[in-house]
Simulated assay, not measured.
Amino acid sequence: MNCIGLHAHIGSQIFELQPHHDLGAVMVQWLSKAAQYGLPVKELNIGGGLGIRYTESDDPPSIEEWVRVVVESVKVACEAQQVPLPKLLCEPGRSLIGPACVTAYSVGSQKIVPEIRTYLTVDGGMSDNPRPITYQSLYRVVAANRMSAPITETVTIAGKHCESGDILIKDASLPITHPGDILVVMATGAYNYSMSSNYNRIPRPSAVLVREGEANIILQRETYQDLIRQDRLPERLKQS
């Protein structure tokens, strides 16, 4: 085997540029050490980790700023270590696909617990977005068909899975909504579908690609037949 490159991953949803700057210098140190052992390392992959804006308070740097910091760090470190510039790879991942997608839900019923909380139910939940229940991820939501309406309500958006933890967003700020309204959760492109499941035998939703007024289905909505197509009866039960 030939060692052609080194790879690192320092974390995810990082808003500060300094860790990425530090990573470049560390990677070049390993590049220099590899050369001492006769390993022909010519590529550095600095991974990803650049954060995106899930909520209004998130303020990530741009991809351009991130790239500039990494490139300058590697260049300076290579000059200091007197090693040739490597082929530089990165994994922008979430920072590209995350903001490119949204998830739309239909509003169902409302449950008011006086002086405690108002629950708003939707036709999805932890099966299409397990991140809030597994590690308390935060998202922004809007009422897509009431974008001009004043924000007057604070509600907790609950899923349909009969689990106490099936909460998509706690204390969301919304206008008055009614059954059938469309709630849209922002920045769901990176993980929702890849982490989705058929929990409680719930079929996955469809995915639609929209560009310049044209919409195309790129993932068909699952049906009940899709859910049971792998099910099999033992032969003796079939015969009876």
Results as ranks from 00 to 15, higher is better:
Ile97Asn: 02
Ile97Ser: 03
Gly98Met: 13
Pro99Leu: 10
Pro99Ile: 13
Cys101Tyr: 10
Val102Cys: 06
Val102Asn: 06
Val102Gln: 07
Val102Gly: 02
Thr103Gln: 06
Ser106Gln: 00
Ser106Asn: 00
Val107Pro: 01
Val107Met: 01
Gly108Ile: 06
Ser109Phe: 03
Ser109Cys: 10
Gln110Met: 14
Lys111Ser: 11
Ile112Gln: 06
Val113Cys: 05
Glu115Thr: 10
Arg117Cys: 11
Arg117Phe: 11
Thr118Leu: 08
Tyr119Asn: 12
Thr121His: 08
Val122Glu: 05
Val122Lys: 00
Val122Gln: 00
Gly124Cys: 09
Gly124Lys: 03
Gly125His: 04
Gly125Asp: 12
Gly125Ala: 09
Met126Leu: 11
Met126Lys: 00
Met126Asn: 02
Ser127Ile: 11
Asp128Gln: 03
Asn129Thr: 09
Pro130Glu: 12
Pro130Asp: 10
Pro130Ile: 15
Pro130Cys: 09
Arg131Ala: 14
Arg131Pro: 02
Pro132Ile: 15
Thr134Pro: 03
Thr134Ala: 12
Thr134Phe: 07
Tyr135Val: 14
Tyr135Cys: 12
Leu138Arg: 05
Leu138Pro: 01
Tyr139Arg: 05
Arg140Tyr: 13
Val142Glu: 12
Val142Leu: 06
Ala143Glu: 13
Ala144Leu: 14
Ala144Asp: 11
Asn145Ile: 12
Met147Trp: 03
Met147His: 02
Ala149Met: 12
Pro150His: 00
Pro150Asp: 07
Glu153Asn: 08
Glu153Met: 07
Thr154Ser: 10
Thr154Gln: 10
Val155Met: 13
Val155Ile: 15
Thr156Tyr: 05
Thr156Glu: 08
Ala158Ser: 07
Gly159Trp: 08
Gly159Arg: 01
Lys160Tyr: 07
Lys160Gly: 07
Lys160Val: 14
Lys160Asp: 15
His161Trp: 07
Cys162Tyr: 09
Glu163Tyr: 09
Glu163His: 08
Glu163Asp: 14
Gly165Leu: 11
Gly165Lys: 01
Gly165Pro: 07
Ile167Trp: 05
Ile167Arg: 00
Leu168His: 01
Leu168Cys: 08
Leu168Met: 11
Leu168Arg: 01
Ile169Glu: 04
Ile169Tyr: 00
Lys170Trp: 09
Lys170Met: 13
Lys170Val: 14
Asp171Phe: 07
Asp171Leu: 10
Asp171Ile: 12
Asp171Asn: 09
Ala172Lys: 02
Ala172Tyr: 06
Ala172Met: 11
Ser173Asp: 13
Leu174Ile: 15
Leu174Asn: 04
Leu174Tyr: 05
Pro175Glu: 03
Ile176Cys: 02
Ile176Val: 15
Ile176Lys: 01
Ile176Phe: 05
Thr177Arg: 00
Thr177Ile: 14
Thr177Trp: 04
His178Gln: 09
His178Glu: 09
Pro179Thr: 01
Pro179Cys: 06
Pro179Ala: 01
Gly180Gln: 04
Gly180Met: 09
Asp181Leu: 07
Asp181Tyr: 07
Asp181Val: 12
Ile182Ala: 03
Leu183Asn: 00
Val184Leu: 12
Val184His: 04
Val185Ser: 02
Val185Phe: 09
Val185Pro: 04
Met186Trp: 08
Thr188Ala: 08
Thr188Leu: 11
Gly189Arg: 01
Gly189Met: 11
Ala190Lys: 01
Ala190His: 05
Tyr191Thr: 15
Tyr191Ile: 15
Tyr191Phe: 12
Asn192His: 05
Asn192Ile: 14
Tyr193Cys: 12
Tyr193Lys: 04
Tyr193Met: 14
Tyr193Asp: 15
